[in-house]
Amino acid sequence: MTPVPRRVPSEVELVVAGASAGAIDALRVVFSGLVARHPPLAIVVHVPAHTPSLLPSLFSGVCAVEAEDKQPLEPGTIYFAPPDYHLLVESGGLLSLNADGPVNFSRPAIDVLFESAAIAFGPRVVGVLLTGANSDGAEGLAAIHAAGGFTVVQHPDTASAPAMPQAALRRFTPDRVLDLLGIRDLLAEFGTRGTP
């Protein structure tokens, strides 16, 4: 008997995502379906420490900003971790930054964001792990899963770098394994549901 797949949650307060090698192209696809009042989206993309903060400017048609410390999460907004800082979420719905040491050789690290989201948002968070050539994010996504959150992994065969999705799939079984268009369509549902 195959288990019935878990339903997509109707009350999502936050989406967290992580990506590394191949991130920009993947995110362009994923963002293309977002509705105007989508839940806040906090994202870690691995970038070298001393690069200027260009990420938010690479995406047109969405409201993308570099996350600031103690910034309130707002619907319809995408927050990128700044280079060389970890990005975390607080239970009061604020973002936090910190300059703790690298985790999985990365700062920002996907695990740090995901673990904070698991603790602060539990079942009200959706975690999405995309293409990447390392194993950051697997532990964090498993933590979201354990806390009752909804987890999505990009199908490794469709990822430009499969290692990161593979590491997560070795760690646990997420709620969905999808290609980029599938992830786009899934995220497009959030923000249209639950709100009149």
């Binding site: 975390l88 979420v89 607080e90 239970s91 936090s96 910190n98 703790d100 673990e115 904070s116 603790i119």
Partner: peptide, 9 residues
């Protein structure tokens, strides 16, 4: 202190 950061440490 920021709960998210201190909890991790």
């Amino acid at each position: 202190y920021s709960v998210a950061s201190i909890r991790r440490r």
